[in-house]
Each structure stands twice: as structure tokens, then as C-alpha cells.
């Protein structure tokens, strides 16, 4: 593979990963925390109504996991495509 083709493949994989993670980002905050909050509130999790929990707790935990997954997966992509730093 030429360097350019490799870089293009790396970028494509990167954009795909980010797109998937941002879909989850949207679902956890906007969809579960705002748009679907009322139906989700009929489900209980201990003292929390689920929609309320996503809005005030769960979305933040999801964001943390997303960045962790992103950093780990990108490190792997860097090595696979030979573009990691020296």
C-alpha cells in the first residue's frame, strides 16, 4: 500500500469510529435524556426514574466511557496503519 492509500484508509477508519461513538453520544444525552425522557421515566432504577437518571447522571458516565473507548481504539488504529508517533 502506498503511504497515501494507507493514510486514506486510516482516516476512513477514524471517521467511522467517531461516527459510531457520536451516535451513542447522541442517544445517551439527547434521545434518552431529553426526547424520550417521559416514557423512560416510567422505568425505575432504584430511586431513580430512568430518563431523569440519564439526564443528570447516566449521560455523563456515557461520555466518559466514549472518550476512553475512543482513545484506546485510536491507539490501536495508529499502530495498525503505522502512523503512531515515534
Amino acid at each position: 500500500m502506498t503511504l497515501n492509500a494507507s493514510a486514506a484508509a486510516y482516516w476512513k477508519a477514524n471517521v467511522k469510529l467517531v461516527s459510531i461513538l457520536l451516535v451513542i453520544w447522541f442517544v445517551a444525552s439527547y434521545l434518552f435524556g431529553i426526547i424520550l425522557v417521559e416514557p423512560l421515566n416510567s422505568i425505575r432504577m432504584g430511586g431513580y426514574q430512568l430518563g431523569f437518571w440519564f439526564a443528570q447522571q447516566g449521560s455523563i458516565y456515557t461520555f466518559l466511557i466514549l472518550i476512553y473507548v475512543y482513545a484506546t481504539m485510536m491507539g490501536k488504529l495508529d499502530r495498525e496503519h503505522g502512523v503512531e508517533e515515534d
Binding site: 443528570q56 449521560s59 455523563i60 482513545a71
Partner: peptide, 29 residues
């Protein structure tokens, strides 16, 4: 703000943390 807005205070909680996901994936590196 949250004490008085109740559920609605979530705007600030999500808004001021969710930006870090964008920062990490779209800009910072």
C-alpha cells in the same frame, strides 16, 4: 440552578460535559 430547575437543570449538566466528547474526537488531537 439544579435545585430550582429540577430535571430541567440537566441542560447544564449535559451541555457542560458533552462538549468534551466533541473536543476529544473532533478537535484536540
Amino acid at each position: 440552578l439544579i435545585a430550582f430547575f429540577g430535571y430541567g437543570g440537566a441542560v447544564f449538566l449535559m451541555g457542560w460535559t458533552g462538549g468534551y466528547v466533541l473536543l476529544a474526537m473532533l478537535l484536540a488531537p
